[in-house]
Design a protein around this nucleic acid. Structure first.
Lengths: 110, 110
DNA sequence: TGTTTATATAAGTATATAATTATATAATAA
DNA sequence: TTATTATATAATTATATACTTATATAAACA
């Protein structure tokens, strides 16, 4: 049971097309920044700034591996269950992976 | 299964403390503007403007009765099931009604 | 009728947000 | 070492947002 203000803040974070898409993608596979840049066809700083916002609010975690930074959902987050039920309405769970492959993109950078 | 852009737009509407609270209250009982004004301790124009936004996006309906305008959730809205699952995480379903009564407020204006 | 009550809307303002551009950092590769 | 690649961050700008104040509308009531 969440406080309404925290919940509103979390919903606001998801209430942006770019961030919701990022979260939907990460819900299927961890991903590095460059993949998100290509997938979403947006500039690298724009993606990084959205990721920072998600990270600052604890919704995603980052792992550095070689020259890449991989992002993943923070499954320990208080709102993770609520997000999952949103994703359940939202997603064809295979859709983003399919989209990735259609564009000839690997799922992992390395 | 919703398009991600429409879903983001809907989540943005819910991603405001005032609107999320209004939706949570309406999920428990239809309500007129003056009650929302007292409950949320905000100005009448501020409340009306949030209600208009919710109405323009089809999330709530209005019914005029005497001098009051009652608002209610639009249960036919495409996103109504998703909102319900959000509310399920969000709410102690009796909390807002209790809060209403504590303030000596009637649930219906008339 | 004129007054009050409930609500909506318009105009203005302050703040928040998302993007771009330019630059910094850090790791890898040549 | 220098160049390249991946990422982050700062500064700027344009737009969106939420509020206030003032006003309009419409119903009820004296």
């Amino acid at each position: 049971m969440y406080h309404i203000e925290e919940a509103a803040n979390m919903l606001k974070l998801l209430g942006d097309k770019t961030r919701l898409t990022i979260m939907a993608i990460l819900n299927e596979a961890d991903c590095c920044v460059c993949e998100l840049v290509e997938l979403l066809q947006m500039s690298q700083p724009a993606i990084s700034q959205h990721l920072r916002k998600l990270k600052d609010n604890g919704l995603v975690k980052e792992t550095k591996r070689a020259q890449w930074v991989f992002y993943s959902l923070n499954k320990k987050h208080e709102f993770y269950p609520m997000m999952q039920s949103i994703f359940a309405y939202l997603l064809d769970p295979k859709e983003h992976i399919r989209q990735l492959k259609e564009k000839g993109m690997r799922i992992q950078c390395e």
